[in-house]
Design a protein around this nucleic acid. Structure first.
Lengths: 222, 222
DNA sequence: CCTACCGATCGGTAGG
DNA sequence: CCTACCGATCGGTAGG
């Protein structure tokens, strides 16, 4: 209706009007999430300030709050973004199975050695989550439980059928623990620790104790 | 000279006068350190407040500062106290060697399951130490390096002589990593994780890969 | 996306 | 070991 009153000047479609004025909202949110990931890694969540995050993306801290409502919401966005784009990105994609998943863990550890920021964010936030009333506590509880199940399922396919499920979950727990513990030592002294080698050794040790053939997964040298 | 003017009223010796008025300074300092350990575990160091610590010992936060000068100094006292009284108390005592040390690690993990406060303080502070300008960073760097050497030395005595030292340090790194990683998962979900069993499995896996006889340390069932 | 502001918390100091 | 205080920082809101 109103379009007929201005036949020559083509009015912007609503979708265009919403997108034009500033860099798209989605893009800005992503830039904020990236900055927040860095700052949370360097300071921890509680000790991080919205001001430092805002300065990284060139706005005031009130601007950041405009996009995420609260610091807690921003943390949620950071954690969800990590799960989507990062290391253990099995959500949307096809999850590698069996030996391929175990190889994936080693490859991930190797890549992590070039991404201290991501590693530090994960390490700092996951352990900070055990402190009183931390907003990410349930997130990490669920995350660890999910990882344990995924790795246990992969182990199921490469160990003798007689091995009970409880043993597989225990083994998965240990592989995760080793990866996480290596990250902390590596963050403190990068040159002294070889994360990928450590993870590979841990997996070999676990498989040997579960009675799996040494050729069960292909990263093996034998 | 002045003593001769008061022959009947025995003057207090300087040492007595200094110690009487209030509960001994050393005892008060210990109570503050104990309270601070709890609060640092529950909140992390940066997010902990001197007020909360002070309330636990029944004084004001200025009182706490009177005893330790600064929050950083209090953190130092907490970390040093832990090293003196805790788990890996090899400082003053005779350090158990070889298989006995490995058994000690398993026993420690078992005892830790009844001391969530201590475990949480260690886990939270050690990982928080990787954040920017953290006052405990060097402390934990040194601590990890020391633990690696001690455990590597113990392994040296139970594996074939042909195994090079670098392999022993790598193995020690992994044992420590597994213990630390298990602590985090256990803190988030105590009923789902058996720390002692995990540590024992990790040690067995490492020894097997280094070619040590399965009877190398006595905790073994074989 | 900003300016301006509030209420709250914190570590540390003075001065006793 | 306390009272009183300071300067600084922070998350969040109002109102545009």
């Amino acid at each position: 209706m109103s379009a007929s009153t201005q036949p020559t000047v083509k009015p912007l479609a609503p979708a265009d009007r919403a997108r034009k004025p500033r860099a798209s909202t989605a893009a800005t949110r992503e830039r904020i999430v990236a900055a927040a990931t860095q700052v949370f890694a360097n300071r921890g969540y509680k000790n991080a300030s919205l001001l430092e995050i805002a300065e990284k993306v060139g706005m005031t801290h009130a601007g950041v709050l405009h996009y995420f409502g609260s610091k807690d919401n921003l943390l949620t966005a950071v954690l969800e973004h990590r799960d989507k784009t990062d290391i253990d990105c099995y959500e949307g994609h096809v999850l590698p199975r069996a030996g391929a998943l175990l190889e994936h863990l080693v490859r991930t550890a190797r890549e992590n050695a070039t991404r201290a920021g991501i590693v530090q964010a994960y390490a700092v936030l996951s352990v900070e989550s055990v402190t009183q009333d931390h907003p990410a506590q349930q997130f990490f509880r669920d995350r660890f439980a999910g990882l344990r199940e995924i790795i246990a399922a992969a182990l199921r396919e490469v160990v003798p059928a007689a091995v009970p499920d409880t043993e597989l979950v225990r083994a998965a727990t240990m592989i995760i623990a080793t990866m996480d513990g290596l990250q902390v030592q590596w963050l403190l002294e990068p040159d002294a620790i070889d994360m990928a080698h450590g993870v590979e050794t841990a997996i070999n040790g676990v498989l040997a104790q579960l009675g799996a053939p040494l050729t069960a997964w292909s990263s093996n040298d034998g």
